[in-house]
Design a protein around this nucleic acid. Structure first.
Length: 574
RNA sequence: UGCCUCAUGGUGUAACGGUAGCACAGCAGACUCUGGAUCUGCUUGUUUAGGUUCAAAUCCUAAUGAGGCAACCA
């Protein structure tokens, strides 16, 4: 055993893909460079499940000093568009990954794929089949019993070739003929029962234009793409596991044709391995379901901040760092699991706690009048921008006789261990002074509309002159300087961990009716200058992000990204 | 009733024949000008049954459970 191998084996926490690649590197199978690829089909927006795959594909390449290509797996023009392709690029860049000059499109290989198909026909490995889809269904058989051969299975190669060329030349209508690989109609693996490798589709391609009316199928195209790119390690999700023998079959045929790339004197034979896709609690991940949410207007669009799409998370205020950290922490395995969204939220808070500037805002305002504070007087509280990061500096927050506080921070009859505002109870107004509530004003219906009280002039800045300890601290906003800001309070999209887990109920019935509440909040003046996309911690409340779409200069709209942990709320529940 | 794959605390993972560990969640406490953060401690686990071995989460067999495969989708 070489020292190199030894060293990697003492390295703990290596998941099976990393081990697999390490072994191949040690065995010299990569020709000096590990090459991976992320191969999305540009038929929709990518979500956090794709982010996991991206982190694996790019991450493995990085770990071995290799290259990860971005390849549009665009072999079905009826579903694909340039708009999707562009959004995918944008999202991957935002996540922090770089494919360098390794950008590819399957469509750029159509000529070569077509040639390979002709070669397959010549060597008797493929034939043109005229069975209708209904007929084929019957011929193919079911997993539990073998299929039977197509009547044209043993047609002469020259005839097949002529027919295939006529298919290419547009002489036949969609679905009338197709090209099948000739493998094994009795195989227990359905994908070996003479799979279709080319179909007729009179549809222009967003990237290849009008050139083709026959397009290759995934199982044929994917290994070819990998092989031509010199991909050494092709990682995908579990549902492709049963396709692997077919992947290898195509690679074998390419090998026979002498088409495998040689790098560093080594013939590169791409290999596929599979890992479990990400499932996240309280959301859905299927493209179809997400599309349904969009089309039925259950959400406002693909980038609705409640969506698990990368653009949705971005708009919600998630950071790429938090998402990458999350993908690192969930690990990689072949076990189909469901990850608790609490872990994602932890990663976000962990990141934002270190970086987000603190601001004060009151979401549900209650007026407080400080009776012994001079009318018209304004002082400034010097407050840290981020206690976790002194280099973020301080700011001056105006303070006056009337301030807004959070309605939830007051109880006329305080529960045990409620350390906030209550008659006769002294609290700290964050960064300003100590204050004691002495009076409560109510409306005719008995609802509290205003608090009165007095402050301790010897507590400017927030500390008592005599050193007495004050347990409760509340945030506030000066009424005279408050900036009105719309704030959108987002919560989980679904009310149950697995909305798809109940066969008797439609997942839509689990939609959380309270997943969005909009409130008119008051913010401290500095908030007016928030730039679109800028993230803050609103002290004692949570992390918020100026909406990149609806914020205007001087008039930000905030999205709640995630709340702060709230141990008082837990206390109340008991 | 075919083939493929998987199974470790509540959740996600590590341990690669030799002391079952980490993280999230939960609970308790300390500290705190955010009931945040931080720090300390705690609870909880190898699906089952056989076999191989001095020794099994790990290897073998079977059972059970879960997922995938029967688009001219990817």
């Amino acid at each position: 055993m070489s020292d190199e191998t030894k060293a990697t084996e003492t390295d703990t926490g290596r998941h099976f893909l990393k081990q697999w690649i390490a072994e191949d590197v040690a065995a010299g199978k990569t020709g000096g460079q590990v090459v991976t690829r992320f191969p999305p089909e540009p038929n929709g927006y990518i979500h956090i499940g794709h982010a996991k795959a991206i982190c694996i594909d790019f991450g493995m390449a990085q770990a071995f000093g290799g290259q990860c290509n971005l390849r549009m797996d665009d072999t079905n023009p009826s579903k694909e568009s340039d708009e999707y392709a562009e959004s995918i690029k944008e999202d991957i860049r935002w996540l922090g990954f770089d494919w360098g000059d390794g950008f590819y499109s399957a469509a750029d290989l159509f000529d070569r794929m077509y040639e390979i198909a002709e070669n397959l026909i010549r060597s008797g490995h493929a034939y043109v089949c005229a069975l209708t889809q209904e007929q084929w269904k019957e011929y193919r058989g079911v997993p539990t019993s073998p299929g039977k051969e197509s009547p044209t299975r043993n047609r002469a190669p020259e005839e097949n070739l002529a027919l295939f060329r006529r298919m290419r030349d547009g002489e036949f209508a969609d679905g009338t003929l197709c090209l099948r690989a000739k493998i094994d109609m009795a195989s227990p693996n359905i994908h070996f029962r003479d799979p279709v490798i080319y179909r007729i589709m009179h549809v222009p391609h967003y990237h290849a234009g009008e050139k083709w009316c026959v397009y290759p199928m995934y199982d044929f195209a994917h290994p070819i793409e990998d092989a031509f790119e010199g991909v050494t390690h092709s990682m995908c999700t579990l549902e492709f596991e049963v396709h692997r023998p077919l992947y290898d079959w195509v690679i074998d045929r390419m090998d026979e044709m002498g088409l495998l790339v040689v790098r560093g004197g080594v013939k590169i034979r791409p290999q596929q391995r599979e890992f479990a896709r990400l499932n996240l609690s309280y959301t859905v991940m299927s493209k179809r379901k997400l599309l349904q949410l969009v089309q039925e207007r259950r959400v406002e669009g693909w980038d609705d901040p409640r969506m698990p799409t990368v653009c949705g998370l971005r708009r919600r205020g998630y950071t790429p760092e938090a998402i990458r950290d999350f993908c690192e922490r969930i690990g990689v395995s072949k076990y189909e699991s469901e990850t608790d969204v609490a872990l994602l939220e932890y990663c976000l808070r962990d990141d934002l706690n270190r970086r987000a500037l603190r601001r004060m805002a009151v979401l549900n305002p209650l007026k407080v009048v400080i009776d012994n504070y001079p009318e018209g007087q304004v002082e400034y509280a010097e407050v840290q921008n981020n206690p976790e990061d002194p280099s973020a500096g301080t700011r001056r927050v105006p303070f006056g006789r009337e301030v807004w506080v959070e309605r939830d921070d007051f109880m006329e009859v305080p529960e045990k261990k409620f350390f906030r505002l209550a008659p006769g109870q002294e609290v700290r107004l964050r960064g300003a002074c100590l204050f004691t509530c002495t009076g409560v004003i109510k409306d005719a219906a008995g609802a509290v509309v205003e608090l009165h009280g007095t402050y301790d002039p010897a507590s400017k800045g927030g500390n008592a002159a005599d050193g007495r300890k004050i347990k409760g601290t509340v945030h506030w906003v000066s009424a005279a300087h408050a900036v009105p800001v719309p704030v959108r309070l987002y919560d989980r999209l679904f009310t149950v961990p697995d909305p798809l887990g109940d066969d008797t109920r439609d997942f839509l019935s689990f939609l959380n009716p309270d997943s969005l509440k909009t409130v008119a909040a008051y913010g401290e003046p500095a908030l007016a200058e928030a730039r679109p996309g800028e993230r803050f911690q609103f002290e004692r409340l949570g992390y918020f992000c100026a909406d990149a779409r609806e914020s205007k200069p001087g008039a930000p709209v905030f999205n709640r990204t995630v709340t702060l942990k709230d141990s008082w709320a837990k206390e109340v529940k008991k």
